[in-house]
């Protein structure tokens, strides 16, 4: 009985401290800037359009492909166990490479080395769907980039890019997402740019899309030249933004306007 009371008291302290942490953390997911209708669409797996992609990703997970004739599941087993927390760590350094890669590149490394199958098209629906399926296994877990000197260098490069002005309108990411987050740009609330929900289903796209695609949208808006596909700058910005969102829960797959 005493032990039970102690447990209840400890749970109370834990909940209270969690509530305080959430109340004092000034960081906000873009989810909170949406109206109740879109929040409901994201929260309801039968209404969230990204879940159709997740289903396709689950099928790909189980599909034997390549000259090795293996599926993801043949090596990794139950994704709910083996993939739990994985998406919350990426971008990360991963063998056999000696440099940070994003989740999509990691999946393609498995395709080409272990399954001996052709890589899936970067940002194509198949890779986005499989990424969404893998990311779903980390839903609710805190974003937790690993401590790694090569990743740290990339995060620093991303932080520099984030603050650098560019384009005809002479804006930086920070001009809007740090200095003016919460204010209205053409009537829409500027989010703090925490990548908690990628890949996201964006209503403007009518499609599932990556953080890179979202970054390209911003560059076009700033009238800056988008970096070419696969450029290191996108990965650096992603590494920085994930570090900046460290500890925030993943709420992927997100829905955004």
């Amino acid at each position: 009985m005493i032990r039970l009371r102690l447990a209840v008291a400890l749970a109370g302290v834990f909940c209270a401290s969690l509530a305080v942490a959430q109340a004092t953390d000034p960081r906000r997911s873009g989810y909170l800037e949406m109206g109740p209708a879109l929040q409901k669409m994201q929260d309801d797996d039968t209404a969230n359009p990204a879940m159709l992609f997740v289903q396709a990703g689950a099928a790909t997970w189980a599909e034997k492909v390549g000259t090795a004739g293996k599926s993801c599941a043949d090596c990794h087993g139950d994704a709910a166990v083996s993939m739990r927390g994985v998406a919350a760590r990426y971008p990360a350094v991963t063998p056999p490479l000696d440099r940070p890669v994003d989740l999509g590149r990691r999946i393609n490394l498995c395709r080409t080395t272990h399954q001996q199958a052709p890589a899936l098209e970067a940002e194509g629906n198949d890779l986005l769907a499989l990424s969404a399926f893998v990311t779903l296994q980390s839903r609710g877990l805190p974003i937790a980039p690993p401590e790694d000197s090569k990743l740290a260098a990339m995060q620093a490069q991303g932080a520099d890019l984030y603050k650098r002005r560019q384009g005809q309108l002479n804006l930086s990411c920070a001009s809007c997402h740090d200095d003016n987050a919460g204010r209205k740009l053409a009537g829409a609330t500027i989010p703090q740019a925490h990548p908690t929900g990628y890949p996201i289903y964006r209503l403007e796209w009518q499609a599932l899309g990556s953080l890179k695609r979202r970054l390209r949208n911003c560059l076009v808006g700033m009238r800056a030249e988008p970096w070419e596909e696969g450029a290191a700058e996108y990965l650096a910005l992603e590494a920085y933004l994930m570090d900046r969102a460290r500890g925030m829960p993943l709420d992927a797959p997100g829905v955004r306007p």
Partner: peptide, 24 residues
């Protein structure tokens, strides 16, 4: 300032190709 320079191109970097050397 966050206000873009509407009639100057000096000091701008990585301007999109279709806006290069053009004022807003």
């Amino acid at each position: 300032t966050i206000m873009p320079p509407y009639y100057r191109t000096e000091g701008l970097t990585r301007v999109a190709r279709n806006f290069q050397d053009k004022t807003i």
